[in-house]
């Protein structure tokens, strides 16, 4: 069913030694009902993979299963070479997985600085270094460190959510709908930062995004999910070239089957 546009560098083919995330034949969902079925994907270090698809395709569900919050019905998830810990999901974060969920999950009553520190070990030197890394990517937050997170604007909150993840110096970063509720101009500023994070930290990034063109502009690879199944995968430039397939995926209907048949 999967239309693979990629030929040589298809990223599903070879989980290399630098793979930070390997998802194999994953089915997951809520209360035993699968939302995502038979999904396989790989994210390598330093690589941005965009996960695209219409509402209800299972993008957020996939991320929740990768970070150990949702159970896998079948298949496996390996993060940094280890199976993801679903009994104590907080351990995954300590091992270098950072997840920026759709609702941002900020601590509204804590200050910006406290939000950034809370996930760190508490050692002073490590804390300072991590804060610097986070503020390097988001200099706007530098003047807001003592403000309560609940008082930030939507864009600032989103920066803080990503900065909090970056502060933990993750090796795998999951970002869910970073652009939700933000003006396109803000998104245009935020997405390149994600690219920088992947390049600077050498982290693998799995990015769920509704702004398809902007996401494809910064991603190395892209996957298209529809009704919980992978319908297209390949290098970002090649996926971008198949606009018809993407539009069919978002708008639904007959044309997608037609194209898959070709």
């Amino acid at each position: 069913m999967t239309a693979s546009v990629a030929s040589g560098s298809g990223q599903r083919q070879r989980p290399t030694s630098e793979a930070v995330l390997v998802v194999d034949n994953l089915s997951t969902g809520y209360s035993g009902v699968p939302v995502v079925r038979g999904l396989s994907l790989t994210v390598n270090a330093g690589e941005v993979v965009a996960l695209l698809g219409p509402n209800g395709a299972g993008k957020s569900t996939t991320l929740l299963a990768v970070s150990g919050v949702l159970p896998a019905l079948t298949g496996s998830v390996e993060v940094l070479g280890n199976p993801v810990d679903r009994r104590a999901p907080h351990r995954n974060a300590r091992r270098g997985l950072a997840h920026v969920p759709e609702d941002r999950s900020l601590f509204a009553d804590l200050t910006v600085a406290e939000n950034l520190e809370v996930g760190l070990s508490g050692r002073r030197s490590a804390t300072r270094r991590a804060l610097n890394v986070a503020l390097d990517h988001f200099p706007e937050l530098g003047s807001l460190t003592s403000r309560r997170a609940g008082l930030l604007s939507g864009g600032e909150q989103q920066m803080l959510a990503v900065a909090r993840a970056v502060a933990t110096e993750p090796r795998l970063l999951l970002i869910d709908e970073m652009s939700l509720g933000l003006a396109p101009i803000v998104v245009e500023r935020l997405l390149p930062i994600v690219r920088n994070i992947a390049d600077d930290l050498g982290a693998g990034v799995l990015l769920v995004e509704q702004h398809v063109d902007m996401a494809l502009g910064i991603a190395d690879h892209a996957l298209l999910l529809d009704h919980g199944e992978l319908t297209l995968s390949g290098a970002a430039s090649e996926v971008a070239a198949r606009r018809d397939l993407i539009e069919a995926g978002y708008l639904g209907g007959v044309s997608s089957t037609e194209h898959r048949a070709t």
């Binding site: 919050v69 999901p89 907080h90 999950s105 900020l106 601590f107 009553d109 809370v118």
Partner: peptide, 24 residues
């Protein structure tokens, strides 16, 4: 203290706390 910070974080947003590596 770090425990105090973690407590306030868990009280504020438990899912967020888990995602940054705090055990509620």
């Amino acid at each position: 203290t770090h425990l105090g910070l973690a407590t306030r974080a868990v009280a504020g947003n438990e899912r967020g706390a888990i995602l940054v590596g705090i055990s509620p």
